[in-house]
C-alpha cells in the first residue's frame, strides 16, 4: 500500500484524513473512537472562555445535498475540557483543539489554558453572535488573532476560514502574515430552511451553516485558490464523503483533509478507513507519492 504518512501543518500524521471540528468532538471518548477508527488526527468541538448550552433546537436539519446546522457553539468552557483532550489522546493521534473567542485576548486565554497538540482557530462559525465569522471575515482580525495565539503557544496553529466572503484568499494571506502553520477551508456556508406549513424558519436560530456534498465544489475552489496564493499548507474540508472527494481536494491543493458531515452516513466512523484505504489504492494504481498529487490540477492553467 502507498504510504499516506507525513507532516501536515506542523503535525505528523499516519494519514492526512482528520475528524473535522464540531463533529463528535464534544467528548474525549468520541475523539478517541475517531482516532482508533483510523483518523490521522482529530479536531475537537470548538471551546471558548465560558460554558454555553448552544442554540435552541432544531439545531440540525437535513436539506437537499447536506445538513444545515446552528448548534451555537455549545461547550463546557476550556476550564472543563482538558480531561476530554487527554482521553482523546489515548487514541494515539494528535488532538487539535478548536477554539473560539470574541477578541485576541479571549483566544489567548483559551489557548494558554489548554494543553493540546495544536490549535485550530474558529474564525468562521456563521451562526454565533460576536464569534466565528462575525470577526473572521475581516482580514485585520484574522491577522491579529492569529499573531496573538501564535505568540502565546508553542504548538502549531491552524486557522479555519469562512467561505462567506468575496475573496477567501485575502483571509488566508492574513492568517499567513499572522504566522499560521496552516489554513483550513472551508467552514459552512450561510444558509436557511423554512417550514412551509408554519412559515417558520426551521432552525431554532433561524439561520445556520450548510455542510455536506452540496458545498464540496465551493470547498474545492476555495482550496484551489488558497493553495495558489499561500506558502503555508491548506487543509481541505467541506463535503468530503468518499476517497474520490478526498482525492479531489488533494489535487486542488490540500495537504490534509477533514471529514465532518459524512460521519452521519451509515458507515459512521468507518469512513476514515474507507477514505484512507481508497486514497492509498489510488496512489498505488497511479504509481504516485501523495506529495506529487498535492495541487496536481495546477498543471492545467
Amino acid at each position: 500500500m502507498a504510504s499516506l504518512s507525513g507532516e501536515v501543518g506542523g503535525i505528523w500524521m499516519d494519514n492526512p484524513v482528520m475528524l473535522a471540528a464540531g463533529i463528535l468532538g464534544t467528548t474525549g471518548a468520541s475523539l478517541r473512537r475517531a482516532a482508533l477508527s483510523g483518523a490521522g488526527a482529530v479536531v475537537t468541538k470548538s471551546v471558548g472562555v465560558a460554558e454555553r448550552d448552544g442554540h435552541r433546537g432544531p439545531a440540525v436539519v437535513q436539506v437537499e445535498g447536506g445538513l444545515l446546522n446552528a448548534m451555537g457553539l455549545p461547550n463546557p468552557s476550556y476550564r472543563h475540557f482538558q480531561e476530554e483532550i487527554d482521553i482523546g489522546r489515548g487514541g494515539g493521534v494528535a488532538v487539535i483543539a478548536s477554539i473560539f473567542g470574541s477578541s485576541p485576548a479571549e483566544f489567548v486565554e483559551v489557548a494558554t489554558g489548554l494543553d493540546a497538540d495544536g490549535f485550530e482557530l474558529n474564525l468562521s462559525c456563521p451562526h454565533a453572535e460576536r464569534y466565528g465569522a462575525e470577526i473572521g471575515c475581516e482580514v485585520y482580525n484574522v491577522e491579529t488573532i492569529t499573531r496573538a495565539v501564535k505568540g502565546s503557544v508553542s504548538v502549531p496553529v491552524w486557522v479555519k476560514l469562512t467561505p462567506n466572503v468575496a475573496d477567501i484568499s485575502a483571509l488566508g494571506l492574513a492568517a499567513e502574515r499572522g504566522g499560521a502553520d496552516a489554513v483550513v477551508a472551508i467552514n459552512t456556508l450561510k444558509a436557511m430552511a423554512i417550514d412551509v406549513e408554519s412559515c417558520r424558519p426551521i432552525l431554532g436560530n433561524r439561520f445556520g451553516g450548510l455542510s455536506g456534498p452540496a458545498i464540496k465544489p465551493v470547498a474545492v475552489k476555495s482550496v484551489y485558490d488558497l493553495a495558489g496564493s499561500l506558502e503555508i499548507p491548506v487543509i481541505g474540508v467541506g463535503g468530503v464523503s468518499s476517497w474520490e472527494d478526498a482525492c479531489e481536494m488533494i489535487i486542488a491543493g490540500a495537504r490534509g483533509i477533514q471529514v465532518g458531515t459524512a460521519l452521519g452516513n451509515p458507515e459512521g466512523y468507518g469512513i476514515f478507513r474507507s477514505i484512507s484505504g481508497g486514497l492509498s489504492s489510488y496512489l498505488e494504481r497511479k504509481g504516485m507519492a501523495l506529495q506529487e498529487l498535492v495541487g496536481a490540477a495546477r498543471r492545467f492553467p
Partner: peptide, 23 residues
C-alpha cells in the same frame, strides 16, 4: 440528543463513544 443523526456528539457515552441517537 441534539442532532439525532450521529454527528454532534452531545449524546456520546463514555468510555467507548457509543452514539445512542443512532446506535
Amino acid at each position: 440528543f441534539k442532532c439525532g443523526l450521529g454527528i454532534c456528539g452531545s449524546c456520546s457515552i463514555d468510555p467507548e463513544g457509543i452514539r445512542p441517537c443512532v446506535e
